[in-house]
Simulated scan of single mutants.
Amino acid sequence: MKRRVKDPLSEANSDELAEGHLFCDFAGGAVGHRLKFGGGRGQALPKAAGFTKGRTPTVIDATAGFGRDAFLLASLGAEVVLIERSPDVHAMLEEGLERARVADPQIAAIVARMKLLFGDAKELIPDLSADVIVVDPMHPPRKTKALVKKEMRILRSYVGSDPDAEELVKVALKVAKKRVVLKWPAKGDPLPNIRKPSHQLMGKSTRYDVFMTE
């Protein structure tokens, strides 16, 4: 699964989070650390999405959030479409991408492979095409007393609980050329009315359910 390292947030990011504001930083903080030390294609998400030494799939990130997973996959050479339906989160991503375009040549080259769309993924996906669709909905409440990271609590306050996650996965399964990847709590119950995944990649707190479509 993901490396068990603490991702340091940039000072600006920390200040924004302390005030309960959304902030997207593709050039530094946790994202920059992951870019330098994350392990490339050996990380859980790229493996779940089918990245191999000779294969770089096209990707739709149907639930963009902070955009970190999309940035990771774009850093590995993938063309990634990000979809976000929250106006506030979409605006945050737009601002983050704009800052990244002038950050440095390496970061600018990565975000050039990222295309951000605004709207409901269930409605947009049928008109798009990609090898892989990644779905990372807001996760259900934890069964333990462990507290979710502050940044995720802030994000939840903007986007809600994603009660249509099941419907989104069903749409993704019809559209993805090769596979759908559902990012879900390691001990979370499966989404109802969704077929059993082809395989899973397990981590300490997160798992990737992979549904092959070809």
Rank of each mutant, 00 (worst) to 15 (best):
T56I: 15
I154Y: 14
L182V: 14
E16V: 06
M152C: 10
V81P: 02
D104Q: 12
L147S: 13
K6S: 08
R142V: 01
G54W: 01
D164P: 06
F66L: 07
S129W: 06
S129C: 14
P87R: 13
M1S: 15
A146M: 12
P137C: 04
V169E: 12
D61Y: 02
K196R: 15
I133N: 00
L191Q: 05
K150C: 13
P140W: 04
L45R: 05
L116M: 10
A186T: 02
R142L: 07
V210Y: 05
R153P: 14
K170H: 11
G29W: 00
V89D: 11
F211V: 02
T52N: 08
K47N: 08
G119N: 02
M152N: 13
P57Q: 12
M114F: 00
P140N: 04
L17W: 14
G188S: 08
A108W: 00
F211R: 04
K145V: 10
A186G: 05
L22K: 07
V89F: 06
Y208A: 06
V102Q: 11
A103K: 09
M114P: 05
D162F: 13
K170S: 10
F71L: 04
L45S: 09
R142T: 01
P185A: 05
P140G: 01
E123P: 01
V5N: 03
A176V: 05
G203A: 11
T56W: 09
R3I: 12
K36L: 15
A130V: 10
K53V: 09
P126C: 02
G20H: 15
P163H: 11
A48E: 12
K174P: 07
K115F: 03
R3M: 13
L191G: 06
G39Q: 06
N193W: 01
L93F: 03
S86T: 08
I125F: 03
A165Q: 12
F23R: 01
